[in-house]
Structure formats: structure tokens, C-alpha cells
Design a protein around this nucleic acid. Structure first.
Length: 424
RNA sequence: GGAGAGAUGGCCGAGUCGGCUGAAGGCGCUCGCCUGCUAAGCGAGUAUGGGGGGAAACCUCUAUCAUGGGUUCGAAUCCCAUUCUCUCCGCCA
């Protein structure tokens, strides 16, 4: 959420931002609500002031043992009046907050302006696309032929958009998780977190999934619990309503979790294979930084995610999302897109974002400077490092052989007991 | 699931019969002094949101002692509900 005062005093740039994001929101109501709230508030505070003064007088009289020469009936009425006004204002504040909650973040000045993914900017490319003198198969076919992926039975036991990994499929998935966690903890200095996979609504609100994106979430019936759509939610909320010390920053966490998404609104998209599932595994990087270092940390975080693809020798490119394609809470996002021969295109495998203080303000994550008064909001960042299922997809498709077998990337072999080839 | 105890500032912790208690005391932290270094010592300061004023340092009002309601002229203090934590019993991966 943006700062109320910032919105108030930068209304034009906020409106412009909403336009650039190709977003629909009328700020007319904001201006009205904000103005009325302030007017009513000062009336209320004056009334409270009067009441407090009289109460103090009563206290003083009683202390001195004097008779109380105040009309208590009048005071009672005044008090009732105050309560009435308090309720009115509470409603205004609630409305104003609700509106503030659905205003997206201000994109960084370096973010390309554009309406949709066509206007995203390719920043760099890495790796060489393998020249295949045969027709590359999509991963779903490769996997089914090798008997390591089973979609039909997954549909039976759960439904569409679920999958079963078996044998080497399951083993590679597990190996990838360990591989990624090892690199990020040992080499990149992140602290490993294994959080709850369900969280309460306060956490979902803190990171911005609620109230706006409720329909994307799975909720536990009868409980205030939601299945996490990404580790970002529990991990960022670790420090919700906390005041951190400046010297603790930056904090770097890495967390493996399954992720659960309803994929409402994507019917018919990526129906085959592992690309779009209700449940998938992901290793997530999360950072808490000081404001002045967050963009530098975004670059580092992105490179940390890229490192996984390089070790696995998977060709990819880095894309800076434009204003129309960037996420609601994000100020700047790099997508990592891996080459998939089976689809003959690049597909997102990681999304690395700087949220500035947008999440921190919602979640109340602050820090205190060593020098200087008061507290400031930290900046939060996160990025996939990487989406595990899609990494498996990329390996199957990029390392497939004409005979249907799949070579295991060298870097991964120590994690699968030295096996170097999957064949039927 | 049954019985009980509790939730106060960055942390620990006090709040008596409701009335200058935004909140004692301690720790931590910041600034200054002192000591030829370190440690110790001395002095001052040190919550957050919101409204108004000021160019600013800052001043002022208001709210906040888990959350929400209630009683009262007035509540951290009394009542009710909720949430969470802890102890004991039961159950259990």
C-alpha cells in the first residue's frame, strides 16, 4: 500500500501511474474521503479535548475533596455524541484504507512504459540454444514415455492441473530442490526457512494477495487459513509488525515450499503438462533491505536466480517487465525466461521483484537507523530461485535425445546418485 | 477436549480502592562529559499513528497498555466476547 500522504500530495503522478499500468481505478473518491475524514476528525478531536479537560477538572476537585460542580448529565450527552462521531469516522477510515489497499505500487523510473508483455524489454540473454536435428517433444510426452510423469492418474486422484512424479521424475524434482537450496545457502549466503504452508488472512493482506486477489487462493473451509501461493507470503510475514535493527539488514532468506494456486481465469491455458499446476514446488528468495540498497539487491537477487540456470546450462533471457505487465505490488520486476524446445519459446521460470516499502507498509515491517530518530519501512524483495517444476520441464526438453532418453545435467548428478541418463 | 494462569514501550518488568501514568524501575540504544587505551563512572535523551501550526529544528492537540465491544464525566486498571501464549490432565503424528 502506498503512503496516504504520498497519494494525497502526488495525486497526479498516482493517476498517471494507474494509467501506465493499464489499470482501472477512480481516485475521485479518494480525494473526497480523505478531505471529509480530515474535516470530521478535527471536529471530533476538539470535542475529545473538551471532554478530557472537564474530566481532569473533576479529578482535581475530587482530589481536593471539593464538591463536583459540573453537570454530569451534560457530560454524558457530550460523551455519547463523541462516540457517535467516532463511529462515523471509523467508517471513513475503513473506506479510505480499502481504497488505499487497491492502489498498485509506483513503478521505478527504469521500468519501461507499456501496455502488455509485448512492451517488456529483454535485458540480456545467456546460453546457446541447442541445435536439434530431430523434432523436439514437449516435456509431457517425454515424461510419459519415460514413465516418470503421470497426468491421467493425477487427474483421477485430485483433478485437472495436478501431476504425479515417479521414479527418476520424483528424484530429479527432489534433487533440484536440494541443489538450489545448497547454492543459495552455501554460496549466496541466504538463511534457509521452512515455513507453514498455510497462513492466516493477516499474512495474505501483508504481502498483498488480499483483499484484491482472493479468487487466486485456496482457502480452508471453516478456518481463517489459506494455502500459500508462494513462499513469499509466510517468509515475508516472518517480520510482520516488527522493528528491525539497521545492522541486521539486509536479511536474506531462501525457502522451499509447495505453492497452491487456483489459476482462476486461466482456463484453457497450458492445460497439458507441468507448466501451470494447482500445486507446484518452488524455491523462493526473500530479502529485507534498507531503501537505498534495494535496487542493488534486486540485481544481486536476480543474478542469484540466474546462477541456477547457468549451472544447469539452460539457455535463458532476462526481461524487464513493463508498466502494464508488472505485478500489483511490485515497483520493478525482472522475469527469467528459460528456453523450451518443446514449445519453441521462452517461458517464465522466475520472477524477481522489488516492492520498495509497499509490502512493508502493509505488513508493518520497519527498521531503526543507528543514527537518526524514528523508524522507517524496510524494502522487501523476492524472486523464485527457481520454480522447480518448470526447471524439470526445461531439463527434459533441453536435454532430450533422439531416442527419447534424457541426459541429466552434470551439476545435478551428485544429487541423483551419479545417474547421468534417464531412458525407458 | 477438560482445569487454571497470562497478554503493558526495542527488550525485561511495575501499575495500589478507576482520575496529570504515554505509562515507575531496569536493560539496551543515542548524544555529551570524564578517565592517556579498554572497562567502569556521570549527565541528558530515547514509542507509534493521525490532525493543526512552522521554511525548519520544533510546538500543539488527539489516539494507542493483545483485538473488538460495554460500564463511567473519566479505564492499562471494572465487565463481556474473540485471538494468542503458558502450566496441568486427556488424546495424538
Amino acid at each position: 500500500m502506498l503512503d496516504l500522504k504520498f497519494v494525497r500530495s502526488n495525486l497526479d503522478s498516482v493517476k498517471n501511474m494507474i494509467k501506465n499500468r493499464a489499470y482501472e481505478l477512480d481516485l475521485q473518491r479518494f480525494e473526497e474521503l480523505d478531505r471529509e475524514r480530515r474535516e470530521k476528525l478535527s471536529v471530533l478531536e476538539e470535542l475529545r479535548h473538551q471532554r478530557n479537560q472537564v474530566s481532569d477538572e473533576i479529578a482535581a476537585m475530587k482530589k481536593k475533596g471539593e464538591k463536583v460542580s459540573v453537570n454530569l448529565n451534560e457530560m454524558k450527552e457530550a460523551s455519547i455524541n463523541i462516540k457517535k462521531k467516532e463511529k462515523e469516522i471509523a467508517q471513513f477510515i475503513k473506506d479510505l484504507n480499502q481504497l488505499l489497499m487497491v492502489i498498485p505500487n509506483m513503478p521505478h523510473e527504469s521500468v519501461p512504459v507499456g501496455s502488455d508483455e509485448k512492451d517488456n524489454k529483454v535485458i540480456r540473454q545467456w546460453g546457446e540454444i541447442r541445435n536439434m536435428d530431430f523434432k523436439p517433444l514437449p516435456h509431457s510426452e517425454i515424461g510419459e514415455k519415460l514413465n516418470i510423469l503421470d497426468f491421467a492418474r493425477a487427474t483421477k486422484i485430485a483433478g485437472a492441473r495436478f501431476s504425479i512424479l515417479q521414479g527418476m521424475g520424483a528424484r530429479i524434482e527432489r534433487a533440484l530442490i536440494n541443489f538450489m537450496l545448497d547454492i543459495h545457502t552455501i554460496e549466496h549466503g541466504y538463511t534457509e526457512i521452512l515455513p507453514p504452508f498455510m497462513v492466516n488472512s493477516a499474512s495474505m493482506t501483508g504481502t498483498g494477495q488480499l483483499p484484491k486477489f482472493k479468487e487466486d487462493l485456496f482457502k480452508i473451509e471453516g478456518w481463517d487459513y489459506y494455502m500459500i501461493p508462494t513462499a513469499e507470503v509466510p517468509v515475508t510475514n516472518i517480520h510482520r509488525e516488527e522493528i528491525l535493527k539497521e545492522e541486521e539488514l539486509p536479511i536474506r532468506y531462501v525457502s522451499y515450499t509447495p505453492c497452491f494456486r487456483s489459476e482462476a481465469g486461466s482456463y484453457g491455458k497450458d492445460t497439458r503438462g507441468l507448466i501451470r499446476q494447482h500445486q507446484f514446488n518452488k524455491v523462493e528468495l526473500v530479502k529485507f533491505t534498507r531503501p537505498e540498497e534495494s535496487y542493488e539487491e534486486l540485481e544481486k537477487l536476480t543474478q542469484n536466480a540466474e546462477e541456477i540456470l547457468r549451472r544447469l546450462n539452460l539457455p535463458y533471457r532476462v526481461v524487464s517487465l513493463c508498466t502494464g505487465d508488472i505485478g500489483f505490488s511490485s515497483a520493478k520486476t525482472y522475469d527469467l525466461e528459460v528456453w523450451l524446445p518443446g514449445q519453441n519459446c521462452y517461458r517464465e521460470i522466475s520472477s524477481c521483484s522489488n516492492f520498495n516499502d509497499f509490502q512493508a507498509r502493509r505488513a508493518g515491517i520497519r527498521f531503526k537507523r543507528k543514527k537518526g530518530k524514528g523508524t522507517e519501512f524496510v524494502n522487501t524483495l523476492n524472486g523464485s530461485g527457481l520454480a522447480v517444476g518448470r526447471t524439470l520441464v526445461a531439463i527434459l526438453e533441453n536435454y532430450q535425445q533422439p531416442d527419447g532418453s534424457v541426459i541429466i545435467p552434470e551439476a545435478l548428478r551428485p544429487y541423483v546418485g551419479g545417474v547421468d541418463l534417464i531412458s525407458a
